[in-house]
Design a protein around this nucleic acid. Structure first.
Lengths: 70, 70
DNA sequence: TTTTTATGTAAAGTTCGCTTGACATTTATA
DNA sequence: TATAAATGTCAAGCGAACTTTACATAAAAA
């Protein structure tokens, strides 16, 4: 799954650490999401969407080709 | 997190097993989601939303009171 | 009532999401 | 250049999200 986290964070002039703090996760979690090392839990996805005042679908891009992902 | 899975499934006259097969998960996964034993991964949430032709937000209800969930 | 169908749920195992801690690399600033 | 600030990334550990197997219960149909 792709996402627009880095883009959205930079638009707002935030460091990874600041975003992490705002979302109550670790800096490594933000880095890992931005670099695609893993996907967020749905709870974190909701918190991210709420933080940026957007829908989950506007931030996280699900494409069917990942047909075997869980 | 609450969700409308059971309601949506029954509206469409599906058994848990049929929905599970359509989504490529086990029947127990559907039952566990319907009964709130755990939350879906974001990938599964996307597949469910796509299956019902709805947004994730229309199916899964995130409320801020779950402030410590991950 | 008896049998079948649908659902509930537990146990055990695997992988993933997230943590903390650590250290390397890149980028910016003194 | 040298130092600091921001990011990249690894490892170990924990709990969550799945799996399969199994069995119990509920509801519907014979």
């Amino acid at each position: 799954m792709k996402n627009r986290l880095e883009e959205l964070r930079k638009e707002r002039g935030l460091r990874q650490e600041e975003l992490a703090t705002a979302l109550s996760v670790s800096r490594q979690t933000i880095g890992s999401l931005e670099n695609g090392r893993y996907n967020p839990s749905i709870i974190l996805a909701f918190r991210i969407a709420r933080y940026f005042d957007m829908s989950i679908e506007e931030i996280f891009i699900y494409e069917e080709e990942y047909c075997d992902e869980k």
